Amino acid sequence: MTEQVRWSPAGVDLDLPSSARIYDYLLGGGHNFAADRAVGEALAEVLPVRDMARLNRSYLRRVVLALVEAGVTQFLDLGSGIPTVGNVHEVAQDANPKCRVVYVDIEPVAVTHAELLLAANPDATVILADLRDPDAVVNAPETRLLLDFSRPVGLLAVGVLQFVPDADRPRDVLARYRDLLAPGSYLALSHFTPDRMPREMAAGADIFQHTAEPITPRTRAEVLALVDGFDLVEPGLVFTPEWRPESPDDVPADPGRANLYAVVGRKP
């Protein structure tokens, strides 16, 4: 109970692992509980999850910089997670101080710490919301205050859609976001896949069954279907370290061990 009194929101179940807090742990963060750390260690026994997390975070930085370079100054970050070094607003506003960012997460710990981090930043905010309800996310007062949906937006769904089961129709969810975005907007996503390490990913999925958000890893074809209606930008759908690496040395000998596909599309 000491952990909860010190820094976590009231009502958070310390014994139910959360994907946001597990990711925070794998990235070396400090906003996680014993149950989250136990799942992280169990995952590390079957998958290279620390490398997966690191490569995914690096992809997020590169894609934000690429979108800023393409002229995007507004970002909507779905499933943004717990604030760690290299958040979207830090990367984007360092490249262009005019950038505005709205973070969206369903995890109270993530939202609480984002609120603290962003308290002095008028051009970034966070909302507690379910990404599966695009209209509620887009029409939230905080979102409307910062983002102008008559202009291009960078929609980020990085490492989050595997937590949306098929029954919740993630393809339709993204299609609705697409309809709400102006032409020239971008969708950037990354997603767990079983294609490279099927047995290991199946074991990881079994571990996630005992958390607040079970996962649905998806194949290459299934991930491509999520970006229907967007024009893919180079290099298309690849593993995370292969998406516009800053140096050939940044691509490991076996990029497929990243176990996450990365893809960016532009709304025509």
Results as ranks from 00 to 15, higher is better:
15 D>S: 15
19 S>I: 00
20 A>Q: 07
22 I>E: 04
30 G>N: 14
31 H>P: 03
36 D>F: 13
36 D>L: 03
44 A>G: 10
45 E>H: 14
45 E>K: 06
45 E>R: 14
49 V>G: 02
50 R>T: 12
52 M>F: 01
53 A>Y: 01
56 N>S: 03
61 R>M: 03
61 R>N: 02
64 V>C: 06
70 A>D: 10
70 A>Q: 06
76 L>G: 14
78 L>I: 10
83 P>V: 03
87 N>L: 01
91 V>I: 05
95 A>Q: 09
116 L>G: 13
116 L>P: 07
120 A>Q: 12
121 N>M: 12
121 N>W: 09
124 A>D: 05
136 A>K: 04
137 V>C: 08
137 V>Y: 00
140 A>W: 00
142 E>I: 03
142 E>C: 02
143 T>F: 02
144 R>Q: 09
146 L>S: 08
149 F>C: 09
150 S>K: 13
158 V>R: 15
159 G>F: 10
164 V>P: 01
164 V>H: 00
166 D>E: 14
168 D>M: 07
173 V>G: 13
176 R>F: 03
180 L>E: 04
181 L>I: 07
184 G>N: 13
187 L>Y: 04
191 H>R: 11
193 T>E: 06
196 R>P: 02
198 P>A: 14
199 R>E: 15
203 A>Y: 11
207 I>M: 04
207 I>Q: 06
209 Q>N: 12
211 T>M: 05
212 A>K: 11
214 P>A: 11
216 T>N: 14
219 T>P: 13
224 L>F: 08
224 L>D: 08
228 D>I: 10
229 G>E: 02
232 L>W: 11
232 L>K: 13
233 V>E: 06
234 E>I: 02
235 P>V: 02
236 G>H: 04
237 L>G: 10
243 W>V: 00
244 R>L: 15
246 E>C: 10
246 E>I: 13
254 D>W: 11
256 G>S: 11
260 L>W: 02
263 V>M: 11
265 G>M: 01
266 R>G: 07
266 R>L: 10
